[in-house]
Amino acid sequence: MFSFLVGEAVRDLRRAGRVGLSAVLLITLSLAALGAFWLVSINLERAVTQWRERLRVVAYLRDEPRPEAVAELVRKVQAVGGIQRVRYVSKGEALESLKRALGAQSSVVDQLPRNPLPASVEVTPDEATATPEGTRELVQRLTALREVEEVQGGAEWVESLAQWRRLFQLTGLAVGAVLALAAILTVTTATTLVLHARRDEMEIMRLVGATERVIRLPLLLQGMVQGLLGALIALGGLEAAHALLAPRLEPLLTLTLGLSRAAFLSAPEMLLLLGGGAGLGALGGVLAKGRSFA
């Protein structure tokens, strides 16, 4: 019975012909668009979380405290509130990390007559404070401390990044939805053609006592196959685009977003995309049924 249903579905696909092909194409387009926006959004999301985690406020100190006064200073900073962690960075440590960042060029530092870097405390805001509002207030409270010369850091740009991500997500959903609608309609049209070509067959099926399930399942299947095909092509296209573009974009990404690589969709996300395609196709198949039997 299963082989019969599949065989009929294959026949139906052939009958859907060119319209079936354009249905596959439209599903490909809609899922590729959806997937592309999704990809961008996923990577922005990664950047946002990474930056949220890394969010630091740095308070540069007027003078380097004596070693025995460091603990007292840290306590004092901690006391301003909204702080998860405080790390003291001495002048020496600051210079060391500068050297590390410079790498091969670090010898430049050795040429300096004296250490120009100030000592500082690196403050990680707690979760409630890691908002643009919260960090701004934290910066004010830190500036008010007598030992502090200047405070740097803030959450504004991370938040605007997050907003960009949301915008991308919404645009992607909107574009994908419009295309998906077109795709469903095309599958419906293709299936209606199939129904037309299948009139005689369905008449015979009904006469000999086939159940409606057997009569209709091939329609659903062929719609699903159209959708799945479209989704596979879309996924292949996305993979290819990602493989081609990611190496070129990564230097830029590191610079702007701090991401070392552009991630692709995860396995469950890919499955979701494929399932979405199959679903769209099946829906198209079912809708055609509803129309023609009404």
């Binding site: 009904r206 006469l207 000999v208 006592g209 086939a210 159940t211 409606e212």
Partner: peptide, 9 residues
């Protein structure tokens, strides 16, 4: 309606 196939068989 759903039993018509049984009759037709």
């Amino acid at each position: 309606r759903s039993r018509i196939p049984l009759l037709r068989r």
